[in-house]
Amino acid sequence: MIPFLDLKAQYRQLKPEIDEAISRALESAQFVLGPEVTSFEERFASYCGAAHCKAVSSGTSALHLALLAAGVGPGDEVITVPMTFVATTAAILYSGAKPVFVDVHPDTWTMDPALIEAAITPRTKAILPVHLHGLMADMDAITAIARRHQLIVIEDAAQAHGAEYKGRRAGSIGSLGCFSFYPGKNLGAYGEGGAVVCNDPELAQRVALLRDWGQESKYNHVVAGYNYRMDGIQGAILNVKMKYIEDWTEARRAAAARYDRLLEGLSVKRPSAAPYMRHVYHVYSVQLAQRDHVQAALQAAGVATGIHYPVPVHLQKAYAQLGYRAGDFPVTEMLARQFLSLPIYPELQTGQISMVTSELKNALLIEAA
């Protein structure tokens, strides 16, 4: 069986370094925040091309704190997309604001800038684009609209560690950028973790206050905050992994390029990036008209796959109160029906990619017969 994701393979390669880092963190007894987290913050900020990084407990808490630090609250509206994990929408609701969806572009699968201005109202406070699957949204167009309307841009870069847009890294273009270090991410912790990056020291300080109960010093709470701190052990693990993120990213990109070559000429739509984009392939999805049948055939042939995401946020029962219905976002709904995510991770072997594409071709032939 070719797994969709193989976290054990990466751990086996890093085991001596990871075990030493965890032991060091335990010996220090700095279990919450502490020097390992501070060191990681400095390294990740530099990697993103940002002045500041504040490590937090998850990607969701990163989004929540970024919104709060930017002044988003009750009565405000935040424009985002329904083709994302639900955390993007949940964080907006946590802040007391209302999510307002716009559809994604059929080629990039990220926020369609042409639809943004029609969604702006006097209550709009921010735009929250999602860098889906490791490909950044059209940030020039989005930030130009934001400037015209005096709006804040917050990047959901949970899937885009190291992605680039015209030479700038994900997270460094908007006022704030939000990352997840969930274990399956391109840079994953061994548990939950997240970060907010930015260039504004005041925003960074506000995130730092909010993640730690609003404390300027112990028991001196100057704002109402949250328990969103990163654990010291996760900081130690991420410090080890930072040494390898570029090698892993290039391995993902090489795997995606091989998929592209082997899938050439097939009736599948593959991910595409403009020449000025660096796609980091957190996910390698293709569009298939008969997705469910093909997925079943691949499973029977020993190839595990995934779907990101089969039910878009606007059609999730948990968010029915937002008032959207089927048909409101046709591109998103089409992608939800057609996306199939193929195995991709740095340790994936060329022979495995060949097997995946061969079995995909067989499944397509069966469907066409």
Rank of each mutant, 00 (worst) to 15 (best):
F4C: 06
F31Q: 03
E36G: 09
A70T: 07
G75D: 13
G75N: 14
V78Y: 03
A87H: 02
A90T: 13
I92T: 03
G96A: 11
A97V: 10
V102E: 00
V102R: 00
D103L: 09
M111T: 12
D112A: 11
D112L: 03
A114K: 09
A114E: 13
L115D: 12
T121N: 13
P122D: 11
P122I: 04
L135C: 12
D138T: 09
R147W: 08
A157N: 08
A158M: 03
Q159T: 14
A160G: 09
E164C: 09
G177L: 01
Y182A: 05
L187C: 03
V196S: 01
P201I: 07
E202C: 10
Q205G: 11
L209T: 06
N220Y: 08
H221T: 11
A224I: 05
A224S: 06
M230K: 00
D231G: 11
Q234S: 08
V240T: 10
K241C: 12
M242V: 09
E246L: 07
W248E: 15
R253L: 12
A256I: 06
R258F: 00
R261N: 06
R261C: 09
V268D: 10
S272F: 12
M277F: 06
S285C: 14
S285Q: 04
V286E: 01
Q287R: 15
A297K: 08
V303Y: 01
L315D: 01
Q316P: 06
E347G: 09
E347P: 10
G351M: 12
L360M: 01
I366H: 15
